[in-house]
Design a binder for these strands. Structure first.
Length: 554
RNA sequence: GCGCCUGUAGCUCAGUCGGAUAGAGCACCUGCCUUCUAAGCAGGUUGUCGCAGGUUCGAUUCCUGCCAGGCGCGCCA
């Protein structure tokens, strides 16, 4: 069933179409029409500036255009009032009972109320975090753990077929250094230069030796590899456990090594060569990414024949496309934004459309304040705040919510002291409280044996301003989900939730839901209870899209 | 030097395709629980939307230049 906003938009388009058809307006019907909820209640339930946009093409004054459109809208049943205001805005007031039909729509649709099919049939590979398995996940990863997971949920709600993927950088010097560092920890020898430091290295060393006491007596060459592999296994398992506890699930953990083992790197280079963008120079094999706007060409294989990290990246991209993904989304930290040019160019070199097949979301870094000072993070120096530590301090819900509610392209500051001190300053509680509050009302209603059957719903009961406001807010939800999906911005869900919770609290304060004392239940009580119930559905679904729990009690 | 991101209230930040008087939370005041969860509601105070031009009916939003901050520019991974 189309939402009220969609119906209105269609009605407006039809009205403009009629006015053009009968010669009152020149120009063409716009593809989409901006319909907003005015801040000022005197401006009606919905407002549109479409007349202002059409005025020029029509060769008429905006107010005159607005009047023509209004004239074409007069016969629509659900519209109660129409006004031309200010420079040419059209303000629309709807019949309250017609707005209240939304309650039935939501209750019948349940959690699927805001799901759409705008991305139906699109296969999306969503890659995020992709940390080295050489240490615990820290706060930089945490932002993506929350946002990436939420984006996956939002895209799925928009109908996309989403695969969440974690690329394990389990190859190269860093792994060797990691192995050597753990080995040094076990043997009590000096940590190698630029090696990994920190408590966790010692802990890993102990665990490795515990699991395999014979490891220390292996020949030196075998020993370092054995340490590396054992520590890798433990560290990866730790990352997986931490992420699952955080509510972030990956469909695929993709090992960089496996690319090399399967010959995917050679295959990737060949594919690019076929496309005509590979060349040899000074004994090395290059990809001419400058053909597609990159700053400089990139080396695939060094003059000694070994492959670069870049070659893994290209092979991985080609592999994803060959697995059938239409869109590959990369979520990278700001410190990797230099990759954008080469990733886009790589796609173009592979014969793809870099503006469609590849999307790169750059997340600004999270700054941490503790004791009024910025905490500098360095994995190798061992000064890190891990995802796990953050969750211990704030809980999963608060951590996820705080990280998701800001757009990722703005740097954010997390004050650890503030999070430790008073968790109720976090908006997540405000939203969850609204949910728990509704749950309590519904529990009480059940005890009082008041009908919650949708057949007993009388929309004409909901005429209070607060009810109207709440209905209007609920009606926006499908659009919010859709824009969050299209713009890849899950934070919009959180912002909407805060508005919805606020609107509900306002309604709750002014509109008594349950009968007072010995009062008999009426159809007003039932109508309000069903309004509460539909609000609860929307809040729960929105929280679910963020991966945050919707408590029945607080 | 080049590239990306950011600059909005005392603080942390929203602001949809350019729309009406620029918003929220926190903080600070004032009211509201002998009936649904007061983790709440209602009201008050707070602005050079970094600066300067341009585009137009209209700019926080789009364009150009400048200022300030963050990050990145390897045959490293």
């Amino acid at each position: 069933m189309p939402s009220q906003i969609e119906l209105l938009e269609a009605a407006l388009k039809a009205a403009i179409g009629r006015a053009i058809a009968n010669g009152q307006l020149a120009g063409s019907t716009p593809e989409s029409i901006t319909l907003s909820r005015p801040k000022n209640r005197e401006h009606g339930d919905y407002a549109t500036s479409v007349a202002l946009q059409l005025a020029k093409a029509a060769g008429k004054e905006p107010r005159e255009v607005a009047a023509i459109i209004v004239d074409q809208l007069k016969d629509i049943d659900s519209i109660m009032g129409l006004d031309v205001a200010g420079p040419g805005f059209i303000n629309i007031t709807l019949k309250r009972s017609s707005q209240a039909e939304l309650v039935s729509t939501i209750i019948n649709a349940g959690a699927k109320f805001a799901d759409t099919n705008t991305l139906a049939g699109v296969r999306i590979n969503l890659e995020f975090i992709s940390a080295n398995p050489t240490g615990p996940l820290h706060l930089g990863h945490t932002r993506w753990a929350a946002v990436g997971d939420s984006l996956g949920r939002v895209l799925t709600a928009a109908g996309a077929d989403v695969t969440r993927e974690f690329y394990i950088n389990d190859r190269g010097n860093q792994m060797d250094l990691f192995g050597a560092s753990v080995e040094a920890g076990a043997l009590g020898t000096a940590v190698p230069e630029d090696g990994y430091k920190g408590e966790y290295i010692i802990d890993l060393a102990k665990e490795v030796v515990e699991n395999n006491p014979a490891i220390t007596s292996l020949p030196e060459q075998d020993r370092q590899i054995a340490f590396r592999e054992a520590a890798y296994t433990l560290q990866l398992a730790d990352q997986q456990r931490v992420l699952e506890d955080f509510g972030t699930h990956f469909d695929i953990w993709f090992s960089e090594r496996s690319l090399h083992d399967q010959g995917a790197v050679e295959h990737g280079v060949e594919k690019l060569r076929t496309q005509g963008h590979v060349f040899e120079d000074k004994g090395a094999t290059w990809l001419r990414t400058t053909d597609f706007g990159d700053d400089k060409d990139r080396v695939l294989a060094k003059s000694d024949g070994s492959f670069t990290y870049f070659s893994s990246d290209t092979a991985y991209y080609i592999n994803k496309r060959e697995r059938g993904f239409d869109i590959c989304i990369y979520m990278l930290g700001a410190d990797h934004h230099g990759y954008v040019g080469r990733l886009k160019a790589t796609a173009a070199c592979a014969g793809d459309d870099p503006n469609f097949n590849v999307e790169i979301l750059i997340g600004q870094l999270v700054k941490i304040m503790e004791g009024g000072q910025e905490v500098k993070l360095s994995k190798r120096a061992g000064t890190i705040i891990t995802l796990e530590e953050l969750v211990e301090k704030t809980g999963v819900d608060a951590a996820r919510y705080t990280l998701i509610r800001y757009p990722v392209d703005t740097p954010m500051v997390m004050d650890i002291d503030l999070l430790k001190r008073s968790t109720n300053e976090n908006p997540v509680y405000y939203v969850q409280y609204a949910h728990a509050r509704i749950a309590a009302v519904l529990r009480n209603a059940t005890e009082l044996k008041i009908s919650l059957e949708i057949q007993d719903f009388d929309p004409s009961q909901l005429i209070h301003d607060r009810e109207n406001e709440l209905l209007g807010k609920l009606a926006q939800f499908p659009r919010v989900v859709e824009s969050a999906a299209q713009m890849r911005q899950p934070h919009r869900i959180a912002r909407y939730l805060e508005e919805l919770a606020g609107t509900y609290h306002g309604f709750y304060a002014d509109c008594r839901v349950l009968p007072m004392g010995d009062e008999n239940p009426t159809s007003l009580h039932t109508a309000r209870l069903l309004l509460c119930s539909s609000t609860k559905i929307v809040i729960a679904r929105a929280l679910d899209l963020l991966g945050v729990s919707a408590p029945e009690r607080m």
